[in-house]
């Protein structure tokens, strides 16, 4: 199989989408930290658990959007550049 433009593009997309997902570290740390603080808050004031849980979920959702942007970048890279070339490669050209 000759190393032509298609193979280079697919390799670049694979590396690119892998690198894009490094952004998953941010929400992981942030949400873990937030959950820890929420647990402490619930331990300190158990009757406020409802409010704390709602705000924890809201905070997690907003923190997660950076991870979702990374996922969106990775998916769009794969599905716009690499997918059309896969079919050609699988056909053995």
């Amino acid at each position: 199989m000759p190393i032509d433009g298609a193979v280079i593009i697919i390799a670049a997309v694979a590396i690119g989408s892998g690198l894009a997902m490094i952004a998953g570290i941010g929400p992981g740390i942030g949400e873990g930290y937030a959950a820890g603080k929420a647990l402490e808050a619930i331990a300190r004031q158990p009757e406020a658990e409802g409010k704390i849980r709602t705000n924890l979920i809201l905070g997690d959702a907003i923190a997660e959007s950076t991870g979702i942007y990374a996922l969106a970048v990775a998916l769009f890279l794969i599905f716009t550049f690499a997918l059309p070339l896969f079919s050609r490669l699988l056909a053995g050209e």
């Binding site: 959702a61 907003i62 997660e64 959007s65 979702i68 942007y69 996922l71 969106a72 998916l75």
Partner: peptide, 12 residues
């Protein structure tokens, strides 16, 4: 971000 949060989670 409102749309992408829902879309990203579900499509993932």
């Amino acid at each position: 971000s409102h749309a992408f949060r829902l879309f990203g989670n579900m499509v993932g």
